[in-house]
Design a protein around this nucleic acid. Structure first.
Length: 587
RNA sequence: CGGGGCGUAGCUUAGCCUGGUAGAGCGCUACGUUCGGGACGUAGAGGUCGCGAGUUCGAAUCUCGCCGCCCCGACCA
């Protein structure tokens, strides 16, 4: 029997001053966690119990599709060099040396570790497919840990890796994970959405994120309330309202206009009496390319054009340049490449690559397709151009979606207005492709005796994020309530006065009956006033409370549902029957 | 890494501007009264004022440096 008086549950009346989001405040106030340093948290009894319940659900569902492994968190440099990520991870990876001066790191994920095992052990197509997973600590030297447990430097992740013979096999593994994830998050009692996600620099072909919508989140999701379309803003597309083009002026050919000191889209549009929609915006970036052999880095200009009132999406740009690392161009570089300072850049007469940089990668957003007589910079200080028609006045090799979707724009599927909201990413499934298997030399023989490279997928779940997302989703002024499946205890029994013999015996009786019926029960046997115990019960996240008090003389207690505060009388002798099937959804 | 804020008892904080050696509420200990929504009384314990240097007769307070934490941005397989 779990007696509160014997346990360490340090509840606080006030939240620590540095806690901002609800989950952070309540995890600390309810005695689930304590902060050790930025992005590092100790889990106390209640927190650890909730975490164990979550990992148990994850484990049960993952065991249906895969096999649990356990890998070292401490990795040798060579392992990460074999995939190229020793340098690619940069400052985000924790690094250290052993006594012999050898370089080690703390794993951020385990693609390398898993692939290394596969590389050494898998020989034949007969051994495929494989799904290997782990529930372990990951380490990331975050530039900015924040929001309590939402972005931390050490956290528990379930991640799995699939190895298949071909893309069709990967599809199967991917779907298995999609199903398993839905079961996991359903069982954890979360409301979530599955969104199309940006594949990132990994260059994978398909990727979905499992998101919990909450203002505490740091990702943005565009979704359609009508047809259910949902995508990360890094990936989302939309239908753009047609825009009326300007009539040509003068000869109809690109025409120089003097625009002294006018640099922003708004200034120029206003000065010329046109709308920003009739302007095109020129964004200059520099991609940093590294020579794999010499390790020398070289700069390659990337020039992107979007409509004047649109916002360039850097995630989409990143995909468009095949994951190359890029940064905004420096002012000197702009001057050197365009022959003009920023603010007057445009698509026409970019001086040819006489400079030390390679030919620029030029990308044009699809929203400019079919447009005519646009206004843009002239690549000449204090001048802009009118009458620019893409394709006629400058070549467009490829139209690419580069813009960021805005709320209210039309859903790409059904045209209904899109809604944009903040979300926390709790899971991610990802088709990796051949990146690791190829780089690390994983090969098996197919049935013709030919060597083939297996195709991989990787799939992650943030365990602590499930807990924090659940709190963000279920809290009020007094505290929070967790879904019973992941609450440290499902029921807290609150005797109003434990010194009263009748009440005491009834409370113990109720606790024993409920425990015998299989429930996790916490008996608040503390010698505290009822008000204190009620406040704590409201705070600490248990979904149900049984109040044992004045109705004991009638053989009754009260059952309170924390989320709704609905109170029902229940008979002590049959208390265990009170919590029906609805209490525990099928597991 | 750029911008901003904060660091005083376990928690929340006053005091800092205008220098004179630290105060409150909650929590904690003991005793008594109380007991269905954070009780009351009495008596207590608890602070290198983040660290270091400087100015000064004297520094929580002024100056400089460092460290830590939070927020915005950048970043985020």
């Amino acid at each position: 029997m779990h007696r509160w008086s014997q346990l360490f549950i340090p509840t606080l009346r006030e939240a620590p001053a540095d806690a901002e989001v609800a989950s952070h405040k309540y995890l600390v106030r309810a005695g689930y966690v304590r902060q050790l340093a930025a992005g590092l948290y100790s889990f106390l009894f209640l927190g650890q119990r909730a975490k164990l319940k979550i990992t148990q659900i994850v484990r049960e569902e993952m065991d249906k599709i895969g096999q649990e492994f356990y890998l070292p968190a401490l990795n040798p440099r060579e392992l990460w060099e074999s995939s190229g990520r020793w340098t690619a991870m940069g400052e985000n990876m924790f690094r250290l040396k052993d006594r012999g001066g050898r370089d080690l790191c703390l794993g951020m994920t385990h693609e390398e570790g898993m692939t290394e095992i596969a590389r050494k052990e898998l020989r034949s197509y007969k051994e495929l497919p494989q799904i290997w997973y782990q529930i372990q600590e990951k380490f990331r030297d975050e530039p900015r840990p924040k929001s309590g447990l939402l972005r931390v430097r050490q956290f528990t992740m379930k991640d799995s890796y699939s190895f298949d013979l071909d893309a069709a096999g990967l599809d199967v593994s991917y779907r298995k994970h999609d199903n398993a994830y839905r079961r996991i998050f359903d069982r954890c009692g979360l409301k979530y959405v599955v969104v199309e996600a940006h594949s990132g620099a990994m260059g994978g072909s398909q990727s979905h994120e499992f998101m919990v919508m909450t203002d505490a989140g740091e990702d943005f999701v565009a979704s359609c309330p009508k047809c259910g379309y949902a995508a990360n803003l890094e990936k989302a597309t939309s239908r753009v309202e047609p825009v009326e083009d300007l009539a040509p002026t003068g000869t109809g050919k690109p025409e120089l206009v003097h625009t002294p000191g006018l640099k922003t889209v708004e200034e120029v549009a206003k000065y010329l009496g046109v709308s920003p929609q009739q302007k095109m915006k020129t964004m200059a970036y520099m991609a940093v390319e590294e020579d794999g052999k010499t390790g020398e880095s070289r700069n390659r200009p990337v020039i992107a054009f979007v409509r004047g009132d649109h916002q360039l999406n850097e995630a989409k740009l990143s995909s468009a340049v095949e994951g190359r690392v890029f940064r905004p161009m420096h002012p000197e570089e702009i001057q050197e490449i365009f022959g003009s300072p920023a603010g007057f850049l445009g698509p026409i007469s970019i001086p040819p690559g006489k400079n030390k940089y390679g030919p620029p990668i030029v990308l044009v957003d699809t929203a400019l397709q079919g447009r005519t007589n646009l206004v843009s910079g002239a690549n000449k200080e204090d001048y802009h151009l009118r009458n620019i028609t893409p394709g006629r006045d400058f070549p467009v090799e490829q139209w690419i979606d580069l813009r960021t979707v805005r709320e209210g724009e039309g859903c790409p599927n059904c045209g209904a207005p899109l809604v944009v909201g903040k979300a926390v990413e709790i899971g991610h499934i990802f088709k990796l492709g051949y990146k690791y298997s190829q780089a690390m030399g994983l090969r098996v023989l197919d049935k013709d005796g030919k060597e083939v490279t297996p195709i991989m997928g990787s799939y992650g779940i943030g365990v602590e994020r499930i807990l924090t997302a659940a709190i963000e989703q279920n809290h009020d002024e007094e505290g929070f309530w967790l879904p019973p499946q992941i609450a440290p205890f499902e029921i807290v029994v609150t005797p109003t006065n434990f010194a009263d013999a009748n009440i005491k015996h009834a409370a113990i009786d109720v606790t024993q009956k409920l425990e015998a019926a299989g429930y996790d029960v916490l008996l608040d046997d503390r010698d505290e006033r009822p008000g204190v115990k009620f406040k704590d019960a409201d705070l600490v996240g248990m979904p149900f409370r049984v109040t044992v008090g004045r109705k004991v003389s009638e053989g009754k207690v009260e059952v309170v549902e924390r989320s709704t505060r609905k109170i029902e009388d229940a008979t002590i002798s049959s208390i265990e029957t009170h919590f029906g099937k609805a209490f525990r959804p099928a597991s």
